[in-house]
Lab assay of single mutants.
Amino acid sequence: GLTEEQKQEIREAFDLFDTDGSGTIDAKELKVAMRALGFEPKKEEIKKMISEIDKDGSGTIDFEEFLTMMTA
């Protein structure tokens, strides 16, 4: 499992990506986040990433899903 410290770091990354503070990361926010990390993702790639992570089919990534992605 994760230490509380690791969870906190992932939470901070999540909050950075969640620019509108909605508690979820949408495609637009993910794209901005990827760019910040030096990637140039295409729209299809973003969609694919979200569909792989987005277990509940909401079209957005919540913290639990993000946590799973970061620790996979």
Rank of each mutant, 00 (worst) to 15 (best):
V32M: 15
T68M: 12
K31W: 15
L67C: 08
T60N: 07
R35M: 14
A36P: 02
D56F: 09
E9I: 13
E9G: 10
D62E: 05
E4Q: 11
E65C: 14
I53W: 13
I46Y: 06
P41T: 07
F17M: 05
P41D: 04
L67K: 02
E44S: 10
R35S: 13
K43H: 12
I61T: 00
K42Q: 10
E64Q: 08
E45M: 07
D26F: 12
F66K: 00
I53S: 05
M69P: 00
E52P: 01
G23W: 02
D18T: 09
D62V: 05
L30H: 00
D18K: 03
F39N: 02
K48N: 08
E64P: 04
V32I: 15
K42T: 15
G57K: 08
R35P: 03
S58E: 06
Q6I: 07
A33Q: 01
E65L: 12
R35W: 09
A27C: 13
T3I: 04
F17G: 13
G59I: 08
K48T: 06
E9T: 14
K28A: 09
E52F: 13
G57E: 12
E52N: 10
G57R: 04
D15P: 01
D54E: 09
T24L: 07
I50L: 15
L30Y: 01
Q6D: 06
I46F: 13
S51M: 09
I46G: 03
F14I: 01
K47L: 13
D62Q: 06
G38H: 03
E65N: 09
E4G: 06
F17W: 06
E5L: 09
D18H: 03
E44C: 13
L2N: 03
D15Y: 08
T71G: 07
G38S: 02
V32P: 08
G57A: 06
D18M: 05
F39I: 07
E45Y: 10
I25T: 01
G38N: 02
E64L: 11
D62F: 14
V32E: 15
P41L: 14
K43A: 14
T19P: 07
D62N: 15
T24A: 03
K42A: 10
F17S: 08
E65D: 08
D15T: 07
G59Y: 08
K43T: 15
Q6V: 07
M70L: 13
D54Q: 11
F39V: 07
S51T: 05
I10D: 00
A13H: 05
L2H: 05
L37P: 04
F63I: 04
G1Q: 08
E64S: 07
E64V: 06
I25P: 00
E65V: 12
R11M: 04
R35T: 12
S58P: 02
E9D: 08
S58C: 10
G1D: 05
F17C: 12
P41A: 09
G57I: 07
K48G: 06
K48A: 14
L67S: 02
G21A: 07
E45W: 15
G1F: 12
I61E: 00
D56M: 10
Q6C: 13
G38Q: 03
E64I: 08
D20Q: 05
K7W: 12
K55I: 08
K7T: 06
E29M: 14
T3W: 04
T60R: 14
M69V: 06
E45N: 06
T60I: 07
S58G: 06
E44Y: 05
M34T: 01
G59A: 06
D56W: 10
I25L: 11
D20Y: 05
E40L: 07
E4S: 12
I25G: 00
K28Q: 10
G1I: 11
K55L: 08
E65H: 13
K48L: 11
Q8D: 07
D26H: 10
M70A: 04
T71W: 13
T3M: 03
D56A: 08
F39D: 02
I53N: 07
P41Q: 03
A36L: 12
F14M: 01
P41H: 09
K42C: 15
M70N: 01
A27P: 07
K43I: 13
A36G: 05
E9R: 15
K31N: 11
E29W: 15
T68Y: 10
E5C: 14
K42H: 11
E40F: 14
K55D: 04
K28S: 09
G21L: 03
M49P: 02
I46D: 04
D56R: 12
A13P: 00
F66A: 01
D20K: 05
A36F: 11
D26I: 03
Q8P: 03
K7D: 02
R11C: 05
E45Q: 06
T68N: 09
M34K: 01
K55P: 07
D20C: 09
L2Y: 08
K43Y: 14
R35N: 13
G21Y: 05
D62C: 10
K55N: 08
E12N: 13
E65P: 01
E40P: 03
T68Q: 14
T3K: 04
I10V: 06
K28W: 08
F63H: 01
K31F: 14
E29P: 01
I46P: 01
D62L: 09
M69F: 13
K42L: 12
K42F: 10
K47N: 09
E52K: 12
T19L: 13
E64R: 07
G38K: 04
I10Q: 01
D18E: 01
G59P: 03
K55H: 09
I50H: 02
F66I: 02
F39M: 04
G21D: 09
D54C: 15
D20G: 05
E45H: 11
T24F: 08
A36S: 05
V32L: 15
A36T: 05
G21F: 05
E45T: 07
F39H: 06
D15C: 12
E12V: 10
D20R: 06
T3H: 02
Q6L: 12
E52L: 13
E29I: 11
E44R: 04
M49F: 10
L37M: 05
R35D: 08
D18L: 04
E65S: 14
T68K: 11
G21C: 13
K55T: 07
R35F: 09
D62Y: 07
I53H: 11
L2I: 07
K55W: 09
T68A: 14
G38I: 02
K47R: 11
I61C: 02
S51R: 06
G38L: 02
A27T: 13
L30K: 00
L2C: 11
I25A: 00
Q8R: 09
A72S: 09
G57F: 11
F14L: 03
D15S: 10
F14T: 00
K48H: 11
L30Q: 00
K7N: 03
D15F: 06
E65W: 12
T71P: 03
P41K: 06
K42S: 15
I25H: 00
K47M: 13
D26V: 04
G57W: 11
S22H: 04
A36M: 11
I46A: 02
Q6E: 06
T19H: 11
L30C: 07
Q8A: 11
L2E: 03
I10P: 01
S58T: 10
M70V: 15
I25R: 00
G59T: 09
T68D: 07
V32T: 14
S58I: 04
E52G: 09
E9V: 13
I50T: 05
Q6H: 11
K43M: 14
D15H: 06
E65I: 09
E64C: 11
K31Y: 15
K55M: 09
I25E: 02
G1E: 06
I61F: 10
G23S: 02
Q8T: 08
I50F: 14
E64F: 07
E44M: 05
D20V: 04
R35K: 14
K47W: 14
L67E: 01
I61R: 00
D62T: 15
R35E: 15
K43F: 13
D54N: 08
